[in-house]
């Protein structure tokens, strides 16, 4: 059961941004997971001290391989180890999959109502949304998906190449917010997400999208409040805050 801890082995590590990387784990007995679920990861020091953190899973579906993506928090206790020290072959204690609320399930069949989906991510908040985007692509879903991704600068984009590939689908669109530095040729000016930006880049409330918002607490609160102002019912806006600034 999910309350039990098990040992996973690091099979791959790849840099994602200057302060983060993705970590692939092989977890024997992993039952697969829904898009948007997380796992708990536990580190134990030689003296027995333990630190437990929750990490969203960037992958979805069957199989015993899961991918995480971890950003280094400057005063973090666990993330600096995962980003700076962890190497392929290391073992980590995990339990999961966890959480059945912040998840996207593909429609059961073609006759199921295909409600549009709006993903809104800030920084590493893209991780559970990436699982949803990958699940959407894996079943060749025609459900309209739209992602609004807020980053400080272009180099802070997680999964940049794969997102560009996903955006080639006619059923998946990406809009960007650059809070500090925009890429060359970008038409807008850098700045935090605004009501106007949300109004133009988010599936309108009239289409009743399922909305998933993930990011730092301040980002999530701002976005969720603005979405309600724009007419989205609070019950249609699911949020996952991961603390921080």
């Amino acid at each position: 059961m999910t309350g039990d801890w098990t040992v996973g082995t690091v099979t791959a590590i790849a840099p994602q941004t200057p302060t983060s990387r993705s970590i692939d784990l092989e977890v024997p007995g992993w039952p697969g997971n829904l898009a948007g679920q997380h796992l708990d990861l536990r580190l134990t020091a030689p003296d027995g001290y333990t630190a437990t953190r929750s990490y969203s899973i960037a992958t979805a579906g069957a199989g015993t391989r899961v991918q995480l993506a971890v950003d280094r928090l400057p005063d973090g206790e666990v993330s600096p180890y995962l980003v700076d020290e962890l190497i392929v072959g290391d073992q980590l204690e995990v339990r999961g999959p966890l959480g059945g609320w912040f998840v996207w399930r593909p429609p059961a069949d073609d006759r199921s109502p295909a409600e549009p989906v709006q993903l809104i991510g800030g920084g590493s908040g893209i991780v559970p949304l990436m699982a949803m985007a990958r699940a959407h692509a894996a079943v060749a879903s025609t459900v309209p998906f739209r992602l609004l991704y807020s980053v400080r600068a272009p180099e802070d984009v997680f999964f940049a190449a794969e997102l560009a590939e996903l955006a080639r689908s006619p059923h998946f669109d990406i809009d960007w917010v650059y809070t500090r530095t925009a890429p060359e040729g970008w038409s807008g000016s850098p700045g935090r997400v605004t009501r106007e930006r949300l109004a133009e880049a988010v599936v309108p409330a009239a289409l009743d999208p399922a909305v998933f918002v993930c990011g730092p607490t301040g980002f999530v609160e701002t976005v969720a409040d603005l979405l309600v102002e724009l007419g989205h019912p609070a019950a249609r806006v699911k949020t996952e805050r991961f603390g921080g600034a």
């Binding site: 999910t2 708990d40 339990r95 966890l98 959480g99 912040f102 301040g218 996952e240 603390g243």
Partner: peptide, 12 residues
């Protein structure tokens, strides 16, 4: 004490 997270974190 920093900012809060959501109840999702209680799953584990």
């Amino acid at each position: 004490m920093t900012s809060h997270v959501d109840g999702n974190a209680l799953a584990g």
